[in-house]
Nucleic acid binder design. Sequence first.
DNA 1: CGCGTTTTTGACAAATATCAATGCAGGTGG
DNA 2: CCACCTGCATTGATATTTGTCAAAAACGCG
Lengths: 244, 244
Amino acid sequence: MPDGSGAARLGVLSRPGCVGLCEQCRIRGLAVCRALEPQALDELAALATRLELPAKKLLFDEGEPARSLFTLVEGVVKLYKALPDGRRQITGFLLPGDFLGLAHFTSYAYSAEAVTEVGLCRFPREGFLRLLERHPALERELLSRASSELAAAQEQMLLLGRKSAKERVASFLLSFARRQAMVGRELVALPMSRNDIADYLGLTIETVSRSIRAVEEEGLIRLVDRHHYRVVDPDRLRRAAAAG
Amino acid sequence: MPDGSGAARLGVLSRPGCVGLCEQCRIRGLAVCRALEPQALDELAALATRLELPAKKLLFDEGEPARSLFTLVEGVVKLYKALPDGRRQITGFLLPGDFLGLAHFTSYAYSAEAVTEVGLCRFPREGFLRLLERHPALERELLSRASSELAAAQEQMLLLGRKSAKERVASFLLSFARRQAMVGRELVALPMSRNDIADYLGLTIETVSRSIRAVEEEGLIRLVDRHHYRVVDPDRLRRAAAAG
DNA sequence: CGCGTTTTTGACAAATATCAATGCAGGTGG
DNA sequence: CCACCTGCATTGATATTTGTCAAAAACGCG
């Protein structure tokens, strides 16, 4: 079952500290250890440039020629589309292990911006596409991820089209906690601003703020501070999210 | 640029009457004439079962084991997800040439139902996946389509999260007309019910009805009858759709 | 032609957005 | 070290949009 989180439900979630430690994972994010033979892995590694960017840095903008593909190694990235008058819709938050930049056309269909400091691997489009042709396994992995993204996108459409504000917030808090595999006691980090959450859920910051408070007052979560929470009652949170 | 129509902006739009006429197109919908070598095409054809279904027939239901993949040859299909209490979100309308049933997991992530009478090709999952392994070109075609779907899904998230009722309706009328390549004088068929349009746009039927009327009264479209319209002023319609 | 279904229209209600303060926290400079 | 500043978040009062409920109209089918 997809969990509606917008990206990366692939079991490739980040293990902090893995980067630079595990030789196999040196190009993180491509589920490389799982899906690729060592040779393809090496070729990928040869292609990659390592990149560190500060929070709020724009990786690329909607409409710009798609020259690069990336895997996220560290931190959080948001993807979004905007209307001419400035209204924005965030279409997903990416966590370490996620892939971005696959454009069907020659330009990006969305913008990507670092939410926190991020570490990335950058692949030049041309080289990556050539590699793809030589390694069907890589192509299969991408297709698998794209299907998975598509399922998440559909879940998000259901949220945006049919859920109430409180249900949206509950869904988000639940699925974000799940992605960090921390539904139990663990503290969940919420690095993005209320504004980003609002733009992800199709609400205003005020409504997000009020809805988070409502969910907390019912005892479904506990807000430790503005950017950390615990899921107190996963079952009731799931019901509050209108999750099937 | 994606047009937000939810599926099939691949130039594989239907040419009425092609089915059964053109030998190459006998398995329509896989962009077969474009992307595949003749041998793969023949193998695909050998795998396919032809299917005719009446309107309102359920092809498959969310959660059901994904035993088949389909290409739509004739008619219109809707894909949707539902909440336990019955609220529904239609995630896309499929036109001839479109592909459906690619499940990342072993069960379908959404339901599919015939809007009109439909003609389909059905492929058993197992055989199709084996074929996929032998024909990287087919895999590439699917990846290309999945990327394209993803872009459309993101466009739809923008619509659902950030557009007003009138903008949603204008966007829908415009992109549906474009998909039928009929932005000019031509009559656009709108085979689905107001209810389906509402469930696609995240609105109620009443709001859809009023918004269509508003768009018509401004002279952007002309409603011939409930299920046919003409785009009168594409430019102003595009602006009303808040399209960038 | 009549009946069930879908669509449109209207009056009203509810959810969420908007506008306006206020509060809080982290960073900076005195 | 503290006070202030700045940006983000919360809270409150009100406005707007869209949803809900009810009825009439149009359509499609026997």
